[in-house]
Simulated assay, not measured.
Amino acid sequence: MSKPIEDYGFIGNAVSGALVARDGSLDWLCLPRFDSPACFAALLGDRENGHWQIAPSVPVHAVSRRYLPDTAVLETTFETTAGAVTLVDFMPFTGDEHYVDLVRIVRGDRGRVPMHMQLVLRFDYGRIVPWVRRQRYGISAVAGPDALQLRTPVSMLGRGMHTVADFEVAANTCVPFTLAYHPSHRPPRRYKNATARLNDTVERWRAWAGRYTCDRPAPDRWRQALVRSLITLKALTFVPTGGIVAAPTTSLPAQLGGERNWDYRLCWIRDATLTLYALLNSGYRREAKA
């Protein structure tokens, strides 16, 4: 892909993580774990290696992004001549590493904006096209041991091995999309309303961020940057073991054509040691001990 790596936003739930571009395209996601084969791998190849884009279908003249304060919930706002919409991306926390979800909510801010969704599911880094079926809640996709459900009220169509949808979002309304992973030999779970899950996720992140302490308090102007860094470290933690991955990506060379393209979805001793100091110095002893 030709997108700068710094243009990606990171979301995660301490089991896996995803990268979302400024154009609303989710280009990297490994399920159900950080080190699982990717089902969206456009970051390494092209769009046919898997991506999930939700964006206005009319020209966009401005894009702004932010994380909700003290959370790993990402907001991308598109300004168009028809109005403005915000794409809210997050991964709810899970108590079972075999069931991992990613939620996207399109919120109308102003006017009435036409939207387009394109979903290209490709398991095993783009090698495997899943078997997709229409369901009353949306679609299901199965590829060997892996299964996904896309739950949404939006009507979707299959077109050339892609799943597409066109819809409109008016001011003060929301359209949810929930991508839910489960092992294909186990039944899927029942799910809460997407807005309720957003509220639960925000509450849990803010409760965690509120535990931040420091023996040598930093000036207030630094707190936001420090807490943002700590949230990223927490999101990169694999909760079942306590290990923290060095980064959610693999195979990206430090220089094009170079050999330094290692898999960072592992707990590297050097990186883990630096993370350990950061957690201890910030009052997160439970995470440091894990």
Rank of each mutant, 00 (worst) to 15 (best):
K3T: 14
I5G: 08
Y8P: 00
Y8S: 08
F10S: 08
L19V: 06
A21E: 00
R22K: 14
R33I: 01
F34G: 05
D35A: 15
D35L: 13
A41P: 00
L43M: 13
L43R: 15
L44S: 08
L44R: 12
G45A: 09
S57C: 09
R65W: 02
R65C: 05
R65L: 03
L68C: 05
E75H: 06
A82L: 03
T86R: 13
L87Q: 13
V88E: 03
V88D: 01
V88C: 14
P92T: 05
T94I: 10
G95H: 07
D96G: 09
D101N: 11
R104P: 01
I105M: 10
D109T: 11
R110C: 07
V113R: 04
P114T: 04
L119D: 02
G126Y: 08
G126S: 10
P130I: 00
V132K: 00
V132N: 00
R134E: 07
R136E: 03
S140H: 00
A143M: 04
A147E: 01
L148R: 05
R151Q: 05
T152N: 08
P153Q: 13
M161Y: 07
V164F: 03
A165E: 00
A165S: 09
A165F: 02
F167M: 08
V169T: 15
A171M: 08
N172T: 09
N172E: 11
V175I: 15
V175W: 03
P176H: 11
L179Q: 07
Y181S: 06
L198C: 06
T201L: 07
T201E: 02
E203Q: 13
E203K: 13
W205Q: 10
C214K: 12
D220F: 02
K234V: 02
F238T: 06
T241D: 03
V245W: 03
T250M: 11
S251K: 15
P253E: 09
L256P: 12
L256Q: 13
E259S: 14
E259C: 15
N261W: 01
N261C: 11
Y264D: 05
R265P: 05
Y277A: 09
A278M: 09
E287F: 03
K289P: 00
K289I: 11
